[in-house]
Design a protein around this nucleic acid. Structure first.
Lengths: 248, 248
DNA sequence: CGCGAACCTTGATGCAGATCAATTGAAGGT
DNA sequence: ACCTTCAATTGATCTGCATCAAGGTTCGCG
């Protein structure tokens, strides 16, 4: 793994790595205390399923560390990823009793779960939570729409470049303060997961990654360590204009 | 048009056809009065652009009657529809200064607009609005994810069937109380708009509609009037199981 | 060290849908 | 009734990605 993520749960909300980005970001000390009473941590191993679509779901929660995917499956087995859950992302929908999607841990995963009933209660009483959740949901909706353009109109090569630039950008903003020069990051997904993300087959994903490597757009060490020597080049390959969809 | 939609704005919120489904659905009488002070109606003709992506936007609002589309465009002209706005749907994002997408009226359109600043103010003060907006945004997110499966994994024929079943279902719930027997509705989109919706070309849309007609899945009067003799058959063609993604 | 299981790469072939192109049909204007 | 315009249909051909198939690589485990 890239950074030695603590696989253990944080002791208190004060220690929590997602304290200022998750659904609790706006909460005051007293509100955190309330949340503390209804929360519990759960750990999942890479590959484990967190919930199956259709299963009753008596909690909602936040990804603390690790990565999970949200996927939809048709009866004949075709699957499409519809969400990529990173630390601080929210899982579940207040007011809904059953899971709408499969949630699968792709790396070891720590979740901060809230019992659903009391959480819904709190949402009605403390506007800070509902406000933050609205903001996060609007962001997710924007991301989903960006993704729809990728799925509907981009070529396989552009799709791969788009995915890489998303992961690269996230890594840059998250980790180091975006020093320029070659960016490096670890791809958190298998070729198959990337295919499910992009509406492709895993063979096509593999071929296009090889092609981008051959053309010098990316460099690879092993199968997962990616270096991007020229980020603007990557954005151009993704079909994005160079300042890449940064809307305020 | 299907039903003689009033192209004029309603006199008061009490008359308003979307009173109980829009962002104001949960508001009490006094809250409506407040909203009334910051709202104004705008009319658009079919084909007119409501806002261009990137333009400053000093209002948010609801579709009162008519249909609009949300689209994204790449520099080379490829476009993807990312939202289909029906009566009661919300346009704009509180807290954002510029439009993120092109909004185009596909039929004559009436919008109920709120000046952005005071609307944001009200959102902070009256939880009823923020609550309803959260609920609507979560619904839109679900719809977007459903749509991602369509874009990423369905065949052209399945895509068309999916779109038809969405329009059919909406029409059924909206209009008559879902009397079974053959459903009928008017397609509110041109072949090109359907293509933009589904990530196809307009030729493919045309061919697949002809094929569905030939196979008796749908019947057509003119180019826009669709009859569906057997809705379950249509759902099967869409690749949905027969109770079609009705999650609570 | 050798074996098996995931995961990935690469090649050959086929097909669904894009592209290019021509025609038809319907609605509005004069 | 005729012309223009815009939307839709239909045909012919091309191509990007899927599909089918055969290795290759890496890693854990006996």
């Amino acid at each position: 793994m890239l950074n030695e993520t603590l696989t253990a749960a944080p002791r208190t909300c004060g220690d929590c790595p997602i304290r200022h980005r998750a659904v609790c970001a706006r909460c005051e000390a007293d509100e955190l205390e309330q949340l503390d009473k209804i929360k519990y941590y759960r750990n999942f191993e890479a590959g484990q399923t967190v919930i199956w679509s259709g299963d009753p779901m008596d909690f909602v929660g936040s990804v603390v560390s690790g990565i999970a995917t949200l996927t939809q499956t048709m009866e004949d087995g075709r699957t499409q990823m519809v969400g990529l859950l990173l630390p601080s992302d929210f899982v579940g929908r207040p007011g809904r009793g059953a899971a709408a999607y499969d949630v699968v841990a792709t790396t070891d995963l720590v979740m901060c779960c809230f019992r659903k009933k009391p959480f819904e209660q709190m949402m009605n009483e403390t506007p800070h939570i509902a406000q933050r959740l609205l903001e996060m949901t609007l962001d997710e909706l924007d991301a989903a729409r960006e993704w729809m353009l990728v799925l509907g109109r981009k070529t396989a090569r552009e799709k791969i470049a788009s995915l890489l630039s998303i992961v690269a950008r996230r890594n840059a903003t998250l980790h180091l303060g975006m020093r320029d020069g070659p960016m490096q990051f670890v791809l958190p997904l298998t070729r198959e997961a990337m295919a499910d993300y992009l509406g492709l087959t895993l063979e096509t994903v593999s071929r296009q990654i090889s092609a981008l490597k051959k053309d010098g757009v990316i460099r690879l060490e092993g199968k997962r360590n990616v270096t991007v020597p020229d980020f603007d080049r990557l954005l151009a390959e993704a079909g994005d204009d160079s300042d890449g969809g940064m809307l305020v």
